[in-house]
Design a protein around this nucleic acid. Structure first.
Length: 360
DNA sequence: TTTATTTGACCGCCC
DNA sequence: TGGGCGGTCAAATAA
């Protein structure tokens, strides 16, 4: 599930290979006209690029989930929805419990409407109130219980439980969310940047699923250096607030990038490929690493429009950069500062000399 | 002072 | 029938 350093390096190597290959292909195509031999070489390079895609996707899928690549492309991102499940239906014998099949255990009269596995347990656009937490037998992490914020006012019975996977305690925690009862409160999804005091929702309710175009765009950006599809206008709005990964229960501790902190960084979060601004400080590196707020993952930010140049001089400090995390997960982002005296205040470029994504 | 979260206690289902 | 366990309540606590 979690990406180890070795896996990340493998994936990086694959993508670096794809990048170099594409550069050669581009150079070849610019040599016009292509003779027969040139066309053959271009076709071979294209095939190799396809292989890079497949290998990379396979690595992602085999480490992140057991779902087939194609399946996940139809419903990408780090959220795996199991669809409508009613525990009172015959399927109850196949309860999913940390990826294992557990024996059936009939619960209260709670109609399970959906289960999903996600890195951002609050990405559903609804406002919830936590009403309990319980250590579950043989589970490493406590289960949190939430009610719809309007359960009292509007009689909405919607509930959800959040259970962190035992195997996801490392770099990329994953959570199983179980929803019970449909919302009857006509609650509007929370608009970006509009945080409640509890901060108990994901500010980008719809971002949990990337459409195919976005996915393809991100892939194209990684492999070919093309600019990603323009994100929706809302992605350029001020940075909304995401829940902290270390606090899946939606604690009240403000996020370091809370809107109210007034940070002037152009860091957006939430939507896939939301742009960030490079820091004004000088750097010789080509890579902006940011840490995802909602998943504790780190996303890689690439320069918009031109892809990455082998030359680090090509990185303009005031350019806009787009995220493209290895999992293409639409995550909220906050910057990482290597400076001890200004923790998490400004985005920082790493010291890597590689012109290609490097994860640390 | 208000509101949300935490946490121990209690309740009910299941084995 | 009793114990184990998950779900919920509500007082205490924190922000």
């Amino acid at each position: 599930m979690a990406f180890g350093q070795e896996a990340i390096e493998q994936l990086s190597q694959e993508l670096v290979g794809g990048y170099n290959l594409n550069a050669r292909l581009l150079a070849l195509l610019r040599r016009s006209p292509l003779d027969g031999r040139g066309q053959e070489r271009a076709a071979a390079m294209s095939q190799e690029l396809s292989r890079v895609f497949m290998v990379s996707l396979f690595m992602l899928s085999s480490r992140e989930s057991s779902r087939p690549v194609v399946d996940r492309m139809a419903s990408p991102a780090a959220t795996i929805t199991e669809g409508s499940i009613d525990e009172r239906a015959p399927a109850k014998d196949m309860r999913i419990c940390g990826g294992e099949v557990a024996p059936p255990r009939k619960g209260r009269e709670n109609e399970v409407t959906k289960k999903e596995i996600t890195a951002s347990p609050h990405s559903d656009g609804y406002q919830w109130r936590k009403y309990g937490q319980k250590n579950i037998h043989k589970r490493k992490f406590a289960r949190s219980y939430y009610k719809c914020m309007f359960s009292h006012d509007r009689g909405c019975r919607a509930k959800k439980t959040v259970q962190q996977h035992d195997s996801s305690s490392g770099h990329r925690p994953m959570f199983q969310i179980t929803y019970m009862h449909e919302h009857k409160c006509q609650q509007q999804t929370v608009p970006p940047g509009e945080a409640t005091r509890s901060g108990h929702f994901d500010p980008q309710p719809q971002h949990a699923e990337l459409d195919d175009d976005t996915m393809a765009s991100c892939l194209a950006m990684v492999i070919g250096g093309a600019a990603p599809a323009a994100p929706s206008s809302s992605s350029l709005s001020p940075p909304p607030v995401g829940a902290s990964p270390s606090d899946p229960d939606g604690g009240r501790t403000p996020s370091p990038l809370d809107v109210s902190t007034g940070l002037d960084m152009g860091i957006s979060c939430g939507l896939p490929c939301a742009p960030v601004k490079a820091p004004s400080s000088s750097s010789s590196s080509s890579l902006l690493l940011v840490e995802a707020i909602s998943s504790s993952d780190r996303a890689v930010y690439l320069p918009a429009g031109g892809g990455l140049s082998p030359s680090t001089d090509a990185i303009a400090m005031d350019d806009t950069y787009f995220p493209c995390s290895p999992l293409f997960s639409p995550v909220a982002a906050r910057s990482i500062s290597r400076s001890d005296d200004v923790p998490m205040a400004v985005a920082g470029f790493t010291d890597t000399t590689s012109a290609w994504p490097h994860y640390s």
